[in-house]
Write a protein that binds this DNA or RNA. Sequence first.
DNA 1: CACCATGTTCCTTG
DNA 2: CCAAGGAACATGGT
Length: 282
Amino acid sequence: MPELPEVEVLKRHLAEHLPGRIIRKVQVFHPKVIRPHRPAELGRVLAGCCLEGVARRGKYLLFFLGAPHHQKLTLVGHLGMTGRFYLADRKGQLPAHAVVSLLLDQQQLVFEDPRRFGRLTLDTTSVERLGPEPLDNQFTAQHLQKRLAGSRQAIKVRLMDQRVVAGVGNIYASEALWRARISPRKRAGQLSREECQRLWRALRATLREAIACGSTIPLDFAGRESGQRLFYYGASETAGGHYQERLRVYDGEGQPCRRCGAKIRRAKQGGRSTFWCPGCQR
DNA sequence: CACCATGTTCCTTG
DNA sequence: CCAAGGAACATGGT
């Protein structure tokens, strides 16, 4: 479930293992995922590059590459809906939905994505369009208020606009609004100063909590059948319980609100499901 | 079979 | 210009 917290957790794990590794070869199984590059081109550029660092911006992973013979590069990864990265033994069997693999010396960084909405590319234009990082110290309640002011869009839709704030997706937009006791249908520009303050606080607390819990779906260190250690970003059997417990409204249609007991409702906004409590979100 | 799904981008309509 | 809706992308789960 890759929104900001999941990508952040993944980034922290990758950052423990990748820095200093050299990319020896690139295997591309689904060329669309690396667009606008072509496989041969990407392989030529990346081969020999050192993975110097990993960062996150919104829902994007950034791999900082040191290239001995060219300028420095940033490889941008996005998990889409179903993307996963994991580090596997170089000789290990690839999963059925591997889309790209970066071969290192003893291991390989595998990008798996059944639905193939993800990206791995040197094209940074999507990242450049992003709004501020919600957990950044620079990002204040006043900053948020400014970005909502004058908008007639529903606040929930506005919150998911990556140019307004980076990294908030469908799940955490609903969760943050529940926590702030604000109706997802309220127009963004109609929020009072107090409501903006509450939303700012709620959004940051929601994201921080999710990160602290190791993301909504924990990393499965066992991998599936690999027997290799090292992480695997994906669902494990026991993950479901934690996942449900932590979400207060998302996917909880018909269940009683934990704050006021009213029945959680569901509606479409911008083509996506929104969940909220009509009792305490006004 | 129908319908749902964590995301992004482009296009059309009002 | 803004807001809303739909389609496309491609696949899997219920």
